[in-house]
């Protein structure tokens, strides 16, 4: 399986995603420059974290007009796997590949800390390898991860299993104190209706090795591998 990590001007977690796939998982991976017009040859596209175009205007608003995004949109339309992490999640929302929006954290501060995620849907390509009820310990690092969707959209998403991760306490309870940024219904990650596009604020690529404090992020990538192999 071959992963592609998109590099926008201002991406800064591209290296980390690349490192996890290549050095930790031992899978194939290449960078994709934002001016590329094709993503042919890749099986999963990762939009990494960072500050594409400085996050000026709005996070992800300018990156989504990069040449590469046209092909990412059609890749996703054809069922291709797309994972947007942090800034990548913001780009996916701006590009209309996922519903809702992300804006300023409710306490107005950038926050970098480990969070616990409750997995709400095990039937996506990104979560299919996870044990039911197992919390994921994965860090966040963002200033604009406060998720919003209007009530109708939210209802629709809940119904079709598009809420994938919610912030929870270490005991797995979804409470206000576990919510690090004010996100609606503690939402940390969502997918599209087809389930092949996932956006999440927490950084699984930062939780892939014991030395970094958690290996849970690797499980998401393992799921991707599993579902890809199953689909062949």
């Amino acid at each position: 399986m071959k992963f592609g990590v998109v590099v926008f001007p201002g991406s800064n977690c591209d290296l980390d995603a690349y490192h996890l796939v290549k050095d930790v998982l031992g899978e194939q991976v290449d960078y994709i420059w934002h001016q590329e017009e094709s993503v042919a040859g890749f099986d999963c596209i990762v939009l990494p974290g960072g500050f594409s175009y400085g996050d000026y205007l709005r996070c992800g608003a300018i990156a989504r007009f990069s040449p590469v995004m046209k092909s990412v949109v059609s890749f996703a339309g054809g069922g291709g796997l797309v994972l947007g992490i942090c800034n990548g999640f913001q780009v996916l929302l701006e590009a209309g590949l996922l519903p809702g929006a992300l804006y300023r954290n409710i306490n107005l501060q950038f926050r970098c800390l480990f969070t616990h995620l409750k997995v709400e849907n095990l039937q996506t390509p990104f979560t299919v390898g996870l044990e039911a009820g197992r919390l994921l310990k994965i860090p966040i690092a963002h200033g604009e991860g406060n998720y919003y969707a209007d009530p109708d959209t939210l209802r629709r998403m809940e119904k079709s299993g598009q809420i994938v991760f919610r912030y929870a306490t270490a005991n797995g309870e979804v409470t206000d104190t576990a919510n690090p940024n004010g996100s609606l219904a503690n939402i940390a990650g969502v997918c599209n209706e087809m389930k092949n596009v996932l956006g999440m604020m927490p950084h699984p690529e930062r939780a892939g090795e014991a030395a970094l404090g958690s290996e849970d992020g690797r499980l998401i990538f393992k799921s991707i591998l599993k579902s890809w192999e199953g689909s062949r």
Partner: peptide, 16 residues
């Protein structure tokens, strides 16, 4: 203070 800093990016920080 330090929770406002991204101290993890580049995934090399092994003592936080």
């Amino acid at each position: 203070v330090w929770q406002q800093y991204d101290y993890m990016v580049r995934t090399c920080t092994v003592v936080l």
